[in-house]
């Protein structure tokens, strides 16, 4: 029963990930481990490659013809880029929430929740239950339960983003990737999504890209600091417990960044 029970969280790790767009290398030798049920924040100035890195974790770069990759991404020990692995299966296990809320405008709230199953050609066994469970897990059930048939665009920005989280949760992912999920939202919506992230980490592994230092400290267990000097690919400068990285950074560049001296 895929719908009513939740899959267990998985450990995700990367080995020497480098990424190119055409001739330009944008990431070099990224080695990170995202343990099960932990929230990892990826921080760093704009253009340091943190979003690019996030997208290697569910093979989203395959839509870009010029993208190239070296290294491995291991989901519970299995390389997701191995030829025998289907990208669709990867994306079902590794869900993604984007910067700008992107509910499907021609679909109702309910249809948006079920859209992943339809898009990936999966069977829907108990649709009503799945819709309710997913919306509850994204803490938006009470706001929309009486208007599941309404168009998704009738919701506010914050609600749309939580709908998108619920839509990902309906696929029952083991890992959830979030690419600056609150950057387009007001403080109230941001706080609610941060609470949701905390609740979700009980059942999945979460990787979140954020520009907001306070947010990284509030929601994450561990933090990776990305940096790209001019015309060089992005690298991870420092990676560790969030508390340590913000309070007692080892690298002076980390210290400068988390204390707002640049970026």
């Amino acid at each position: 029963m895929m719908n009513s029970t939740t899959a267990s969280a998985s450990t995700l790790s990367t080995e020497d990930i480098s990424v190119w767009f055409g001739e330009r290398q944008v990431l070099q030798d990224i080695n990170l481990v995202f343990p099960a049920n932990q929230v990892t924040a990826l921080i760093g100035p704009s253009g340091c490659g943190k979003s690019t890195f996030l997208r290697t974790l569910n093979r989203m770069h395959e839509l870009i013809p010029s993208a190239g990759l070296a290294g491995r991404v291991l989901l519970d020990g299995q390389d997701i880029y191995e030829p025998s692995v289907d990208a669709v299966d990867v994306r079902i296990k590794v869900g993604m929430v984007f910067q700008k809320p992107n509910p499907f405008p021609t679909m109702s709230i309910r249809e948006n929740i079920l859209s992943g199953l339809k898009l990936s050609g999966r069977k829907i066994t108990d649709a009503d239950d799945l819709v309710e469970t997913s919306l509850r897990r994204a803490s938006i059930w009470n706001e929309v339960k009486d208007r599941l048939g309404d168009q998704a665009l009738s919701l506010s920005g914050g609600q749309q983003q939580r709908l998108c989280i619920a839509r990902s949760l309906a696929m029952n992912p083991e890992v959830l990737l979030m690419d600056e999920p609150c950057s387009a939202l007001d403080p109230g919506s941001t706080r609610r999504i941060e609470e949701t992230i905390q609740e979700l980490s009980a059942s999945m592994t979460i990787v979140i890209v954020t520009h907001n230092m306070q947010q990284a400290q509030r929601v994450s267990d561990q933090t990776a600091f990305f940096l790209a000097d001019e015309n060089t690919p992005g690298v991870v400068v420092e990676f560790g417990r969030t508390e340590d990285l913000f309070n007692t950074p080892i690298d002076p560049r980390t210290n400068d960044y988390v204390n707002g001296h640049f970026g």
Binding site: M60, S120, R167
Partner: peptide, 11 residues
């Protein structure tokens, strides 16, 4: 929208 659909496992 297209990215969202692909990320949900769309072909």
């Amino acid at each position: 929208l297209i990215n969202g659909a692909v990320a949900l496992g769309g072909s």
